[in-house]
Structures are given as structure tokens and as C-alpha cells.
Design a protein around this nucleic acid. Structure first.
Length: 194
DNA sequence: TGCCTGATTGCCT
DNA sequence: GGCAATCAGGCAA
């Protein structure tokens, strides 16, 4: 049973922390694939210069201003897709980027989609997990409450670590990245900036 | 209209 | 550890 609307309609940082340990499930004609969320980043609304919502509800960022509970999928670096969960009430621009999963079900399917064998290389990064779960532009704007893409309850990690967000240049020191320090499936990349 | 940057990854040296 | 791939959106002209 999917997480209820009320889970998403809360402050973005709260939702981000609570997403750790939850299970992301995507059912496609190829089969079902799922993973436990072990790493996320919070992107706030118009006050967060690193957020797509910074410039207001225009273009692709318009989805971020809808009521929480939607998937926001965007294309990055001309190469891959990243999946976010829209948070907060309508009119606020928050979302949480899902950065890494621990593969649970459909591991063989994920290995095929990723053309990789090691479990830790299947979904240990935002672009990787989108590929592993076959999340793309077709999933942009889908409701997580009643579609083939959903979030299921799961046990929270024993502890939560935080750090600055990865790969951004603005607001680069805001501690809005949250992860399970005990999981080998988090993305290992050191923070890089230009 | 055109240039530049980025919420990244994986291959190459 | 460097760097190319490849494109949408912002911003200058």
C-alpha cells in the first residue's frame, strides 16, 4: 500500500529525512523492480538558489509547485534522468531528489537494464537508479499514490547522516543531503564543484 | 538566435 | 583523476 498524500504534504526537509528506508517500486511490462531509499537531497522552493524552483513555477519546475505526491523527472547533462518527489502543499516549490537505492526486487531486471553485475553499481546514483527502474520522461508528473510508480512503507535507518548536496555550485554548503551511513549503496562521489 | 552551464556517469589514461 | 557525451533552460545580444 502506497504512502498517503499526507506524507508528502509536509516541509521538504522533513519528507526527505523520512524517505530514507522507504521502498520505491516501479512496475512495467518488463516486470517489477524496487529498492530501499538510502540517499536523498532536499531542494527547497524559491529561496533555494540550487533548486529548479528558484525562478518560480515556470518551465519544467512548474511541477514542483503542485501539491506533494507527484514524481518530477528531469533530464540531466543530456545523458540521463533524475527522479524527484514533489513535496508540500500546492504553491510551494519543494522536491526531494532520490539519489541512491539498495536493490530489493527485480535485481536481474536491473542488471539487464544497467548492463552491470555488482549490486552496489545498480542504483548508487540518481542517474543509475532511474535507469535501473526504467524511470524516464513517461513518469514525469505521475501520481505516486495510485500509479505503477509508488513509494511503500519501510523501516527507517538506525541513524541518518547529513552533508552538503553534491554537484551544485550555489548554496553549496547547505546540509540538505541525507543518507544512511551504514549502507554500501550510497553514491560515493566526493562533492565536486567548478 | 546563440552561447554556456549543470541536481552525472562511465570510459580512458 | 581527467574528460566527453549531449540537451533544456537561462541569459546576453
Amino acid at each position: 500500500m502506497a504512502l498517503p498524500r499526507a506524507f508528502y504534504v509536509r516541509p521538504t526537509v522533513e519528507v526527505a529525512r523520512d524517505l530514507l528506508g522507504k521502498t520505491l517500486v516501479h512496475r512495467t511490462p518488463d516486470g517489477l523492480a524496487s529498492g530501499r531509499i538510502v540517499e536523498v537531497e532536499a531542494y527547497l522552493g524559491e529561496d533555494d538558489p540550487a533548486s529548479h524552483a528558484f525562478r518560480g513555477p515556470r518551465g519544467r519546475a512548474e511541477l514542483m509547485f503542485r501539491e506533494g505526491g507527484l514524481a518530477y523527472v528531469y533530464f540531466s547533462y543530456g545523458v540521463h534522468y533524475c527522479m524527484n518527489v514533489v513535496t508540500g502543499p500546492a504553491g510551494t516549490g519543494g522536491a526531494v531528489l532520490i539519489r541512491a537505492l539498495e536493490p530489493l526486487r527485480g535485481v536481474a531486471l536491473m542488471r539487464r537494464r544497467r548492463a552491470r553485475e555488482p549490486l552496489t553499481e545498480l542504483a548508487s546514483g540518481p542517474g543509475k537508479l532511474a535507469q535501473a527502474l526504467a524511470i524516464g520522461p513517461e513518469q514525469n508528473g505521475l501520481s505516486l499514490l495510485k500509479s505503477s510508480l509508488s513509494l511503500q512503507p519501510g523501516a527507517a535507518p538506525a541513524s541518518i547522516a547529513e552533508s552538503p548536496r553534491i554537484g551544485i555550485t550555489r548554496a553549496a554548503d547547505w546540509p540538505l543531503r541525507f543518507y544512511d551511513p551504514a549502507s554500501p549503496h550510497v553514491s560515493r562521489r566526493a562533492s565536486s564543484r567548478r
